[in-house]
Each structure stands twice: as structure tokens, then as C-alpha cells.
Amino acid sequence: MRHWWKLLGAVLVVGASITALRVPLAPALVHSSADRLAPGEQAFRITGYNTHFDQRVRPYVWLATDDAKFCATTVQVEGTGSLSATFDIPNGLGGQLAHLVVFSPTDGVLPLYDAVWTGDGGTPLPDRNCDVTPLAMKPFDFSFPNRSLLYETIRNLNFHVPMWFTMMLLQLVAVVYSVRTLRSNSLRDDDAALQAVNVSLLFAALGLITGSIWARATWGAWWTNDTKLNGAAVTTLIYLAYLVLRGSVPEPSKRARLAAIYNIFAFVLMLVFVMVLPRLTDSLHPGNGGNPAFSQYDLDDQLRLVFYPAVLGWMLVGTWAFTLKLRLSRLEHALDENDR
């Protein structure tokens, strides 16, 4: 079985893709009907996503600030994804943002951060404890982190990011062949570098388009002038210019040396534009300046458990695509030799 790695790649991609689409999002609160407190009796209608509220195992609701925990007087479950909590709000409160917290034994502790402005008065939120000690552990359930704005699109991590990792791997392969070209002056090595760049551009295109769709759904724009996005676009242009450069040099061995040198610089520029510069300035894109990567949401490693196999699988499939392209190109060159 010389081709085991192709099978492994296919199995990993299929398995990770199905898992990435099937795993449910963790329960979370998505909406509260009121966002500021008014003195007197006040009812909040709280909407959850993938929650399992159940009146039989009574959920608790409270408002939380750094120093106080103010509990609802009554909590009424309206459905698995909706409950109503009534607070008895004293006069004169104000000046704080409070989190709305639901503890349900079925779903664990669900916070809606900075959900409520306490009003225009000056008194801080008092303590009104309901003596519930939430279990520290949420009930075990294989699920992806549920983040506001992202919601289900967190699954895209397992599709969009592996495209870029595969592109980088193929460009690394291209650099290795370019260095070999400079040492060996072999047109075969030069051709391998070219085919690796060709396939890397397919993955760059997929990365750009999938990223653009995700950006539209999350940031509201197909493209933003962000260092990460522009860096990725410039990288793609640099590699397109590699193809243009090759096209403009007719003499094969000269073309091979020139393209090899250009390709080494292109790889360094790719690393700078995609990995270094976005980390030095502010960026909307996760994992870059001022913006944490998804690893911080992934407290129990459940996203990683799908993401790493997806990356490895796509890298293997990308390598497979590269070998197909290379074999075809070698076949064409052999035919050219025969014709001569």
C-alpha cells in the first residue's frame, strides 16, 4: 500500500467535514427582551440557542456585576429555548453594566455579557442572593463553542483555514523544489516547483472566496481593508506574478533559474504578509493583532479535535492534487520529447 496516505487524506477530509457539519453548537443565550432596568417589577424574556430549559429542573436567573448577584424572584420556562424571569428592581439603581446569567442544570451556566444597563441613578446593584451554587462543570456534551456574531459559522474554521494551511504547505514544497533547481539546474525540479505553485493557487482562491463569504456574514462586507485580508490577496498576486514571469522568459534553463530565485522571495513575502504583518497591527481577523484566535473559545478542545484532522486531511489531499498535476505535466513533457 504505497498510496495509503491518499486514502488517509480522503478519510480525514470526509470524516472531519461530516463532523464539522454535524456537531451541535453549545447552548448559549442570544437575546434578552429588555436591555435596561426600570424600578418595580420587571419581566425579562430570555432567548437561548440550543438550550434545553426545563421547568422540572428549575433554572435560576440573576444579574451579575463584579460585586453583586441580583436574583430573579420568579423564573418561568416557556420552552426549551425561552424563559421569562421577573426581577423586583429597587429605586435609584444605575451607572453599571450587568451580565444576565442563567443557570440551568441541563445546560450549565449561560452568561449574556453586558446585557443590561442598570439605569441612570447612582446606586450600585445590591446583592440579592438566591443561594444557588452552580456546578462548575457544564454537563458533558460534544459541542462547538457558541459565540455571538459567529453562531453556526464557527464550523467554517474547519473548511476555510485548512485551505490556507494547504496553500502554505504547497508553497513550501515549491520552495524546496526551487532550491533544488538552483543546485541541480534540473528542469524536472523546476517543473515540480511550478506545479506546486499552480495547485497552491487553487487553494488560495478557495481560501479567498470562502473567507469573503464568511466576512459578509460576520462583518457585513465581502472585503475589508484589513492587513490579513490584503496580505492574503497580495500573496496571491505575488504567486500569479510568478506565472507571468515564467511566461515572459522563453529560454527554459534561464527561466528555471529566474523563477526559482523569484519563488524563494515569494515564499518569504508570503510568510511576512500572511503570518507576520497582520500580527503587528490591529486586525479584525481572528488570531491576529488585537484579536484572539478561536483557541481561546475552545476551552475543552472540542473544536481542535475536528480542526487538526481537517488540516492534516486537506494537506494530504492538496499533496495528492500536486502529484496528479506533476504526473500529468511529466507525461506531457515525455510526449514533447517523443515528438522531437
Binding site: L150, Y151, E152, F159, L206, T210, L328
Partner: peptide
């Protein structure tokens, strides 16, 4: 459409783009 069902349609669109891209690549090969 993109925001429907907890933005699930965005994921569908992304997966579709990858499949279409690979299929077009196979057609060129």
C-alpha cells in the same frame, strides 16, 4: 439567507464553494 438558521447557510455556501472549486479543477485536469 446568509443569516438564516443561526447563519448555517453561510457554512453551506462555504462548503459548496470548496466542492465547486475542486470539481472545476478536476474538469481542467
Amino acid at each position: 439567507s446568509l443569516h438564516a438558521a443561526g447563519k448555517m447557510n453561510t457554512v453551506i455556501a462555504v462548503v459548496a464553494v470548496i466542492l465547486i472549486g475542486l470539481l472545476l479543477w478536476m474538469a481542467s485536469l
